[in-house]
Every structure is written in structure tokens, then in C-alpha cells.
């Protein structure tokens, strides 16, 4: 590419900031963001397993970090992210069978996965909340 061509700003297609957020577009990006976030959790899972394999002292250190206030809030957020990605993923698998593409179905399944994620997250944390 010549310098002259590089200097001239090229036209851009309308991007995400232009459009009004809709359930469809928001859930699409949520699936990506939660996926990226859960990748970080994969690292935590490995650290946690290595700590458990190393011995009780190292394990206590990692477990203590997770049990702290910040750790518990992070874990709660991660639980919600996990269920959003799980439900969103199942929604994608249903779409792969060429079902549920009507606009009504897309919105119905969209709200369904949001509701399911909230319920599942609360259900997962109920024992913890009652234990105090």
C-alpha cells in the first residue's frame, strides 16, 4: 500500500457504538465477554489443582484467597458468567439444529437464558448464603 493511500482515512462500516443496544446484540457480546472471563477462570482452576497437588499449606493459601471477601464476590460474578455462557452456548447449539430463528423465538430464548442464569446462580449460592 502506498503512503498516499495510507494517509487518506478509509470509510468505516457502522460499528457497535452507532446502534441502539438490543437483547440480541447484547447477548451476543455477553457470550464473548463471559467466554474470555471464563478463560481466566481456567487459569485459576489449574493454579488451584497445582496448589492441591503441592500440599496443605499452599492449598490453604489459595483457598484462603478464594474464601476472602473479594474472592467470594469474584466467585459469585464468575458463577453468573458461567451460567450465562452455558445457557448462551446451549442456545447456540439449538440454533445449529436450524431451530428457533424466528424473531419471537430469538427474543423468547434470549430472555429465557437471562432468567435461567439468574435462577441457577442464586440456586448455586443458596447453600453458601444459608451457611452464613
Amino acid at each position: 500500500m502506498s503512503n498516499q493511500a495510507a494517509e487518506r482515512p478509509r470509510p468505516l462500516s457502522p460499528n457497535i457504538q452507532i446502534y441502539r443496544p438490543q437483547l440480541t446484540s447484547v447477548l451476543s457480546i455477553v457470550n464473548r465477554v463471559t467466554g474470555a472471563l471464563l478463560s481466566v477462570c481456567g487459569i485459576v482452576l489449574v493454579v488451584w489443582l497445582v496448589a492441591a497437588a503441592t500440599g496443605p499449606h499452599v492449598y490453604a493459601l489459595v483457598q484462603g484467597t478464594i474464601a476472602s471477601w473479594i474472592g467470594q464476590i469474584a466467585l459469585f460474578g464468575v458463577t453468573f458468567a458461567f451460567f450465562l455462557h452455558l445457557c448462551g452456548g446451549i442456545r447456540h447449539l439449538v440454533w445449529d439444529t436450524v431451530h428457533g430463528f424466528e424473531l419471537r423465538s430469538i427474543y423468547a430464548s434470549g430472555w429465557a437464558i437471562v432468567a435461567a442464569s439468574v435462577v441457577l446462580t442464586l440456586a448455586a449460592w443458596l447453600p453458601r448464603l444459608f451457611a452464613g
Binding site: A52, P56, Y59, A60, Q63, T79, F82, L86, G89, I90, H92, L93, D96, A124, P127, R128, A131
Partner: peptide, 30 residues
């Protein structure tokens, strides 16, 4: 898709196990 299908039961099993082990000590967990 194949890995996603595998992860549905595996992750649910893992999360359920972690919830079940809330408050377990190191020895029990090992």
C-alpha cells in the same frame, strides 16, 4: 460444538461438586 457438548455435563458436575465441598478441609478434598 463437540467440546461445548462435552463441557455441558462436565462443568455442571464440577460446579455441583465444588458446591458440595463448600467448607470441606484439605484431607476430605484430597
Amino acid at each position: 460444538r463437540v467440546s461445548a457438548v462435552a463441557l455441558v455435563p462436565l462443568t455442571l458436575w464440577f460446579v455441583a461438586s465444588i458446591i458440595a465441598h463448600t467448607g470441606s478441609d484439605y484431607a476430605t478434598f484430597i
